[in-house]
């Protein structure tokens, strides 16, 4: 444990832009996920699908069902955003368990970027679905007196999303690193198993909360 988990190491500079470690890791995950998807969906068949295709269909269909159950509407328009959110979070969280790797979500910028995207997407989708005036009126519901609090809650929800994700992933990795430095090779294995579960749970929680926020914004469910 030689550096603070709250720092974001810069790998190289691209002109004035510092390219940090989570960005490099995310590029790697993006490449792997895109390549894997392209390879897996190369020969899809209606009759007698392959095991890989079956797993893909199961994952996509399960995501769609979960989002639909959460948002109480057809999930297909929201599947690319929310499904990618879950898949990226799951892959990113679990990548931290690979020796020599670090989860991009263990950096605050990544979690904040995802929360910011959810915040902006919920506003944009809400305005597009309900109209600007109707959407803005929703902030004064049930009484205009609550307008400041409602506006604040939008920001705090996004903030809590990012902090929850960042805190859980970062702390898990940090604890594992501490235990590993203190006790040796196999002692942190139970903690890593727990981190495995934790990473999937965090991905699920982040995605479900994002679905709830977007559903509340587009009006398919009651705004929380």
């Amino acid at each position: 444990m030689t550096e603070s988990p709250l720092t974001t190491p810069v790998v190289f500079l691209l002109g004035p832009v510092p390219v940090t470690l989570p960005v490099i890791l995310t590029w790697g995950l993006m490449a792997a996920m895109t390549l894997g998807s392209a390879l897996a969906t190369r020969r899809l068949r209606v009759e007698r699908p392959s095991p890989v295709q079956t797993v893909l269909e199961l994952v996509v269909e399960t995501l769609r069902q979960q989002i639909a159950e959460t948002m109480q509407t057809d999930a297909t328009p929201f599947l690319p955003l929310l499904g990618t959110l879950f898949l990226y979070l799951a892959v990113a969280n679990l990548s931290g368990l690979v020796p020599g790797m670090k989860a991009p979500t263990a950096f605050l910028e990544t979690a904040a970027a995802l929360a910011l995207i959810v915040l902006l997407a919920s506003q944009a989708l809400g305005i597009r679905r309900r109209g600007l005036w109707s959407y803005l009126k929703g902030f004064a519901h049930p009484t205009p007196l609550l307008l400041p609090l409602n506006l604040l809650s939008e920001l705090t929800r996004a903030f809590s999303l990012s902090i929850r994700l960042f805190g859980n992933v970062m702390s898990g990795e940090f604890v594992i690193a501490i235990v590993l430095s203190l006790a040796g090779l196999f002692v942190p294995v139970p903690l890593m198993a727990l981190e495995l579960l934790l990473g999937l749970v965090q991905a699920y929680i982040f995605t479900i909360l994002a679905a709830v926020f977007i559903g509340g914004a587009v009006g398919t469910i009651e705004k929380g």
């Binding site: 940090t20 960005v23 993006m30 998807s37 897996a40 690319p80 910028e109 995207i117």
Partner: peptide
Amino acid sequence: DGWTLLLQAVNFLILVWLLRRFLY
């Protein structure tokens, strides 16, 4: 880091587009 935040957001949006194209 603002740049990292911005790049990660862009990365994610690109990933959304890529997975939409190649997976969903």
